[in-house]
């Protein structure tokens, strides 16, 4: 890793030494907050699967999912460092601040991806390892390199990458992909667009400045609100599939209905809101609620499956 960068002034004298990256800067490259959600849903997939897994192997599987997700985030930051520098939200990232050199971030991401896939393959099984590699490749190549700067459907299609973790967790336990695993995938797939578009509504200026064609930038706030509402409505029946497949019981189903109706209600509030006048208060609330929603939904699944509710 590059510890020291000396910028040479015109007269050949050493002028400025870049600050040395700390371990926290490398931790920031892994997008730890995003990783939390990925790890939680991945672990939920592992717990919900019908095959019990030894705690040590479960720990290895969760670590592999966390490492792969973080590594994909580091590669994403390496590629997007130009637009991250323009956007308010991402301006403090390590690559933008210049504390981590771009080749170091890329190498960090690639090495961690390799370690994560090998760990999953050797400790659990190669089906889960292949899914992990596929999810990483999808996030880097399909979302980051291909779709993000080209289409307002970037997070719809690219969001599939973030939907893989419960399926990977399930495959880590069972060695296969079942209908329930696909239902868990579909749940996060449908959750991702309203989650990101709620954020994009009040960060539209930032995205426009960076040239990222998010839906509010390209189609406007009105079309985005309609899409947000449509996805939250579509998500409700899908959230009941784990009960339909017999993995969870009626307690989870009741929780899913309540949570789903709250999600729809938050989307309706966003639809009715005069965003510029209110400072996008409802959109900000919806973004915050969407994170809680996913945690609560998977938490309820695990609790019901374990007989805790």
């Amino acid at each position: 890793m590059t510890d020291l960068t000396i910028e040479t002034a015109g007269n050949g004298t050493a002028a400025v030494a870049a600050p040395l990256a700390t371990w926290r800067d490398y931790l920031d490259l892994l997008k730890p907050r995003v990783m939390t959600l990925v790890v939680f849903t991945g672990a939920a997939g592992l717990v919900l699967a019908p095959t019990p897994v030894h705690p040590v192997l479960a720990l290895a599987a969760v670590l592999a999912i966390a490492l792969a997700a973080g590594a994909a985030g580091a590669i994403n930051m390496w590629y997007d460092r130009d637009i991250d520098a323009v956007m308010e939200r991402t301006r403090a990232r390590p690559l933008v601040r210049g504390v981590v050199a771009p080749p170091d971030a890329l190498a960090f991401g690639l090495v961690l991806t390799g370690i994560a896939v090998m760990l999953m393959g050797l400790a659990l099984n190669w089906t889960a390892a292949a899914l992990l590699a596929l999810a990483s490749a999808f996030y880097v190549f399909v979302y980051t390199l291909w779709l993000k700067r080209r289409t307002p459907q970037n997070i719809v299609i690219g969001g599939a990458a973030g939907a893989f973790p419960p399926m990977i967790g399930w495959a880590a336990a069972t060695g296969e992909v079942s209908a329930t695993a696909i239902a868990l995938f579909a749940l996060i797939f449908l959750w991702t667009p309203p989650h990101f578009w709620a954020l994009a509504l009040y960060r539209a200026g930032d995205y426009a400045k960076a040239g990222v064609p998010m839906l509010p930038v390209v189609a406007g706030a009105r079309a985005t609100r309609r899409q947000i509402l449509a996805y939250t409505v579509a998500m409700l029946p899908v959230s009941l599939l784990p009960t339909a497949f017999g993995v969870t019981g009626t307690a989870y189903a009741a929780a899913a209905v309540v949570l789903g109706l709250l999600f729809i209600a938050s989307a309706v509030r966003v639809c009715r809101e005069d965003g510029p006048a209110t400072g996008w208060r409802s959109a900000k609330l919806m973004f915050g609620y969407s994170i809680f929603h996913l945690f609560a939904l998977f938490g309820a699944m695990v609790a019901d499956h374990a007989g805790a509710i």
Binding site: V56, L63, L122, A123
Partner: peptide, 10 residues
Amino acid sequence: VLIYLVTLVR
């Protein structure tokens, strides 16, 4: 340590 434990379990 994790690799060692995984090996033992396997």
